[in-house]
Design a protein around this nucleic acid. Sequence first.
DNA 1: CGAATGTTTGAAGGTGATCAAATGGGGTGG
DNA 2: CCACCCCATTTGATCACCTTCAAACATTCG
Lengths: 248, 248
Amino acid sequence: MSTFLRPRVPDVQNADSAWAICPFCGPHKQCLPPDVLEPYATRLGHISGHRRVARGDYLYRAGDAFTHLHAIRSGDVKTSRVSADGEEQIIGFNMTGDLLGVDAIHDGRHRCNAIALEQSEICTLSFTPLQELFLFMPRLLQHFLQLMAAEIARQQNAIILLGNTRTEQRVAAFVISLASRYLALGYSPTRFRMRMSREEMGCYLGMTNESISRALSNFRRQGVLNVDYRDLEILDIAALRAAAAGLV
Amino acid sequence: MSTFLRPRVPDVQNADSAWAICPFCGPHKQCLPPDVLEPYATRLGHISGHRRVARGDYLYRAGDAFTHLHAIRSGDVKTSRVSADGEEQIIGFNMTGDLLGVDAIHDGRHRCNAIALEQSEICTLSFTPLQELFLFMPRLLQHFLQLMAAEIARQQNAIILLGNTRTEQRVAAFVISLASRYLALGYSPTRFRMRMSREEMGCYLGMTNESISRALSNFRRQGVLNVDYRDLEILDIAALRAAAAGLV
DNA sequence: CGAATGTTTGAAGGTGATCAAATGGGGTGG
DNA sequence: CCACCCCATTTGATCACCTTCAAACATTCG
């Protein structure tokens, strides 16, 4: 990286609140390595806020002017768009550590709704001052670019999933995706509660809630999963992986 | 924007070659407004190169180390990934003005293949020096962020298309997408040649080449399109839009 | 505790995939 | 420049998969 522009952030302690360092994912710090985060914490704290949202609340709506990025500190959120005929179409599910709203950088207007699936804590980041911080903090900028690129890569996976797989394969891949994200957050990857309805899963995966239900039931009959409504346990991860790879 | 970091680029004429200003899309300049581009041209020129590729050539391969971004100066390119079972899965089609490879910023390694659909002219942009330029050129950075966000938005459209539409609707939307991109490039939006095979279209749209062919034939029978192999003419844009909106 | 919503399972029907074959272009080598 | 061959495209027939419609049951939240 360039040596001529080194962060000139004062090395001030800022321990008054955990919220102050939340903009890049708070306690888990998975978005930004601690050694990078530390000197930025103070400045980032100045441009961030936080809110609590209840199940069903909107973080932002399609059409809203884009002013802030939204980071999930805890909880689960879905992002969706509403088509011309008024039907909701889910773009993705997000959980602790995810950063929402970057797509709105394009034209300064949100094109998605972000809706809480349960009570959640949200950090808001004012984007204009963040952009100015980038000029002082090359590693912060680099990190942000990597974040956006990771989002693109994730969406590529979704495109492949939707275009080139059958229902059971798709559901298996989705369950594995959830498991690996819970693992990354330090939760059990084999037992967790799915926060979205079958309807919402189906909307995201391009199938009906009935097909989702049937696929999960099939996996249960095969001894691969233990499904009790939204509680899920992975019994045979190898078989699940095989199903996700299309080896049926 | 910040006033303390204004571009300090020497105002040097740099007219020796059109290639020198190619990094952000050359003659069409659609990526960067001329008044922004002008002062950057010299510096950008220093970090850019160019190549000519023939039909079937790889711009880069999945697994390659990421060093350069690739901008299409002319021609058409497809990006794809190869699944575990060795099948090609097309992520997108790109044409003049598109910037490829941003997804590799995530971990410094390309995850896609980029393959020329026909003879093309490609600009290469060394990413490390570009990152340093960002620190001097806030508007260039802002523009780049907008570019990446636009890519995310485009992929969201693809996800919706794949998940929530039927074949005819999907094909109609694809044709409209091609038309609007040709329009933006100054070409006829109603008569153009499709650069990809039915097979490749199908792979991208999550259907078989036969289904693509049938959908196009149906539109021809209805007087909506004139299809002659890869040559396409839009006869009834209103009907096509209606089909793309799912109003069948 | 009751109503509304979410989930499971069944049966029937439609859409798109698969298999197959004929036709037409385009690229390559002579 | 032409002819050939390979491959893309079109069209048809059959079939599997998933959707649709329907009903029973569980859960959650007021």
